[in-house]
């Protein structure tokens, strides 16, 4: 089965669809024609750039280059996790906790999957390592960001409740227990829903791309299942680690709730 080559002219044809949508949104005065077109342009530029980066990376094949790429992806994800929390921990803790949780879970699951399950030669071969790490980091980032945001927001709103529980002599783990479980749950819900709906409601993007690019559906399905499992594990362990570290940081050595360690969140 050969892949039908996609020419730039054909892509330009597809872009007419977006332009048509732009004309309609302009006529309907939705006030978002501009952002639609800018977003479409960004897709083209950003994906073209990452295409160049990946082409270079695949030709270099060095472990250090793969590691450097992984590091950049991790730091970008850490920044994103921090930016998505309104009442984040101050003093670098929001970035630190989010990034370490993603490092521990996404990187170890990626390495484990590469070495034990897929087994390319060498194990860090960028064609496998980079997309896998990207899928894992992207999803783990969503889970960690949702979990941490829910936790810090909950503590900010319900600090009087937590302190009243402390006054009654509850240990800190008990006083924050429900908030912590809620936060972890909200980080896990997206991947659980994605696994439950996969194939029935939606065809996962990665699998669709693989089939379009010429893979037999049975193989694409196997890879998709592998991705789902690793993403579930990465997201789950990452969210658990981040929420538990952040909960600990919200109390000091005398089990006092330290709301002063959270940003006030003006906007």
């Amino acid at each position: 089965m050969s892949v039908i080559e996609l020419s730039y002219g054909e892509l330009a044809l597809a872009s007419l669809l977006v332009l048509a949508l732009g004309v309609v949104t302009a006529l309907a005065r939705l006030g978002m024609t501009r952002s639609l077109l800018v977003a479409a342009l960004r897709t083209v530029v950003q994906l073209a750039l990452i295409g160049l980066v990946l082409e270079t990376l695949f030709s270099l094949e060095g472990p250090w280059w793969v590691g450097l790429m992984g590091l950049i992806m991790l730091l970008a994800a850490g920044r994103e996790v921090m930016a998505r929390q309104k009442h984040r921990l101050t003093g670098g803790w929001a970035f630190g906790i989010g990034t370490s949780a993603m490092f521990v879970s996404a990187f170890s699951v990626t390495v484990l999957t590469l070495v034990v399950v897929i087994g390319p030669e060498p194990w860090y071969r960028p064609q496998y390592a980079i997309p896998l790490l990207g899928m894992l980091l992207g999803n783990t980032m969503t889970g960690v960001a949702l979990g941490l945001d829910r936790l810090t927001e909950g503590v900010w709103r319900q600090r009087a409740m937590i302190e009243n529980r402390l006054m009654l002599g509850e240990p800190w783990r008990e006083a924050i227990g429900e908030l912590r479980r809620d936060a972890t749950r909200s980080g896990l819900i997206p991947i659980v829903n994605a696994m439950a709906a996969a194939g029935i409601v939606s065809l996962p993007g990665m699998m669709t791309g693989q089939i379009l690019a010429g893979s037999p559906p049975a193989l694409a399905v196997k890879y998709q299942i592998l991705i789902m499992f690793t993403v579930a594990a990465g997201t789950g362990f990452g969210t658990l680690a981040a929420v538990s570290a952040a909960s600990r940081r919200l109390f000091d050595e005398r089990e006092r709730l330290r709301v002063d360690r959270l940003a006030a969140g003006g906007g």
Partner: peptide
């Protein structure tokens, strides 16, 4: 431990939760 202390020396706040 602080929670043991608070169970012995118990604060009842003006606004209960």
């Amino acid at each position: 431990p602080a929670h043991v202390w608070r169970r012995r020396v118990m604060l009842v706040p003006a606004e209960s939760q």
